[in-house]
């Protein structure tokens, strides 16, 4: 379980996030909406542990441990993983090597790569000249190898063409065990299958396309550093596309006052 309590975060001396409370239970996937610059990526980077995001107040707990001041790689070992929107290029380091690092072993990389149609990229330098879709597939491949319990997705559908969006969507669903019902050999009742799910997800999306593939449990809106009430992600998306983020802001203000 991920628990965030009254979190305040600064980046380069500016307060980006305020009074953030968030709880993601095992098996749950949350969707995060919000306009550009509202602090969505900041929230993900803070959970992952990027040191430039200073936690000024509040705490983050994961699996019962206070991870507020834990270094990034220890959080990764504890089971937090992230799919980045614009990951850096690393010259001379092959994608294969990075996937092996994620998996902590050398075998099985080809098989994993096949699942996201990425075998041909394994011997390319990490993110070097990758298109938007290729970056996303590379990120998902790394997450597949890493197999974390909490996965943070920063706009997984941005820059992905219509053909690949299904692949990306289905892969995320698989990572988050949203496809348990469809997996072969599982004949237990549907509600019980839901309980078997342990993976947690937090997904930033602008378009909501990803919701066609993943049944998200909860949706929230981040606006000017504040997090709105929890609601059904579809309803939030409808509200935003009909009346814009402004309407959601009213909702937040209504709550906080």
């Amino acid at each position: 379980m991920l628990v965030i309590e009254d979190l305040q975060v600064e980046l380069a001396g500016q307060t980006i996030l305020n009074h953030i409370d968030l709880e993601i239970k095992p098996g749950e996937t949350h969707v995060l909406f919000g306009p550009n610059g509202s602090g969505k990526t900041t929230l993900l980077m803070t959970i992952m542990g990027y040191p430039q995001y200073h936690v000024k107040k509040g705490k983050i707990f994961f699996k019962g441990k206070d991870i507020t001041n834990m270094p990034i790689h220890e959080r990764a070992e504890l089971g937090i993983g992230m799919s980045y929107q614009r990951p850096p290029t690393i010259h001379g380091v092959k994608t294969r090597q990075l996937v092996q690092i994620c998996a902590k072993r050398k075998q099985g990389v080809e098989e994993l790569a096949r699942r996201v149609n990425f075998e041909d990229f394994l011997d390319r330098d990490v993110n070097d000249g990758f298109s938007g879709g290729e970056i996303k597939r590379s990120e998902l491949l790394q997450l597949m190898a890493q197999d974390p319990d909490l996965m943070l997705f920063d706009e997984p559908e941005s820059g992905v063409d219509m053909e690949n969006i299904a692949l990306v969507g289905k892969t995320i669903a698989m990572l988050l065990q949203k496809d348990l019902e469809e997996r072969e050999g599982n004949n237990r009742p549907k509600m019980q299958k839901k309980l078997e799910r342990t993976k947690m997800g937090l997904i930033i999306t602008h378009t909501g396309y990803i919701l066609d593939y993943i049944a998200a449990d909860k949706g929230q809106v981040l606006y000017e550093g504040y997090l709105s009430c929890v609601s059904n992600p579809r309803e939030i998306l409808n509200c935003i596309s009909k009346s814009g983020y402004k309407e959601c802001v009213r909702c937040i203000i209504g709550q906080n006052s």
Binding site: P51, I90, I101
Partner: peptide, 18 residues
């Protein structure tokens, strides 16, 4: 460095890999 750390490498391991 931080990108590789988020994949489980320590700071030294990440630096040496790069």
């Amino acid at each position: 460095i931080t990108y590789l750390m988020s994949r489980g490498l320590s700071e030294e391991q990440a630096t040496s890999t790069i």
